[in-house]
Design a protein around this nucleic acid. Structure first.
Lengths: 201, 201
DNA sequence: TCATAAACCTAACAAGTGTTAGGCAAATTT
DNA sequence: AAATTTGCCTAACACTTGTTAGGTTTATGA
């Protein structure tokens, strides 16, 4: 019973790659089977449906992100440090598996009930993590008094959009990207302690 | 010859809505026909293929954005004003047709050659508009000396992600969103004229 | 060695896919 | 009034879809 789900893992990984490349709907079970050099019907020994594969990918990523957020919140940090860590963790997880992340970010829409509702709940839970950090920062008076919902969306958009441009062969390492992105985001969030002549307070 | 393409326009609009809702691949020509109360085959009197409809939507949006960018650049403004105007225009166009925009942003991947290459070219052209403004701002010394490619991606991610959360019924008007978003983005971009104790220069 | 389970196979299904051919009726133009 | 165009129809095509049933091979463990 050492690695009972080795084949399962393999199928999921392959599926994620193909789901990303062709889109969930355009990717057929025969495409997946073909990539694994088996017959389409054989997949049904491991999963009961194509949608089950999709759901596993989506939920796995969601839980990874939520766990990372919990970890961030467990350690005591001020809001800025928390935000920096949350961004770094988020980018790290995405960059670590671009295919699954792309599926998590875009293909979850193809889920049907009851998966869909469950997924949305997890997604909300995660986004609330960011919201809480930002709200905290505003209360601590280290962040500008921005509309926190708006700020959350801006932050999430920046960290999520990485999937559209990140290439593992590029010269920027994930940690470096996280740092730059945090600087960029915080440049907008951070309370200006002094009057900047170009900035209307 | 007043409104020769009225029906065509109708089909495109309906298609855009359905492409957004179900995804291009999952949306069948029968779905589109059904929504218009006609038969699937009748669509082929107006278009030669399902893909043609997709391509029209993608290219229409691309050209709208490019035209707006040209307009922005035609008027003399400094970099900050240009960026603000580009963001406002971009958000305005997206919010004005959320379905087509969603298709433009996400479903273009389903295009095949030669559409795909042509689309990518237009997309690049548009993104270069943003890049140029930011580079200009850095040269004018009103923007921080950030990695301009990185800044472009951050800006684009913020303005594009609006599609994931904007609801026309919400209480924020597009112009207001554009303003807040510009403030947010510029907060990060703008050159700090004085030392901020929380900011490592 | 034998039993069990895991992994995969062939064959087939019912339903759905984009698309084409050819025709009919109404509107528009000549 | 005749000719043409526009918009839509029915019927069908060749093919692909996810999935199931039932059987065979391969590995595992007693």
């Amino acid at each position: 019973m050492k690695e009972i789900n080795n084949r399962k893992t393999q199928i999921i990984t392959t599926s994620a790659t193909l789901f990303e490349q062709k889109g969930y709907d355009a990717c057929t079970v025969r495409d997946i089977a073909n990539a694994l050099d088996i017959e389409a019907a054989s997949l049904y020994h491991h999963f009961k449906s194509k949608e089950e594969i999709l759901s596993i990918i989506c939920f796995e990523m969601a839980h990874k992100l939520i766990d990372a957020m919990d970890e961030t919140n467990d350690i005591y940090f001020n809001a800025e440090q928390k935000l920096r860590m949350a961004i770094e963790q988020h980018l790290g997880i995405i960059v670590n598996d671009l295919s699954k992340s792309a599926v998590f970010l875009f293909e979850w829409k193809r889920l049907n009930e009851p998966f869909l509702s469950e997924f949305k709940t997890l997604r909300n839970q995660y986004e609330n993590g960011f919201k809480q950090i930002i709200t905290e920062g505003i209360q601590e008076d280290v962040f500008d008094d921005v509309d926190s919902k708006f700020a959350v969306l801006s932050v999430l958009s920046s960290v999520n959009w990485i999937i559209e441009w990140y290439k593992p062969t590029g010269n920027m390492k994930p940690k470096e990207i996280a740092e730059k992105m945090s600087d960029f985001v915080l440049g907008g969030l951070r309370k200006k302690l002094v009057t900047d002549s170009n900035y209307k307070q």
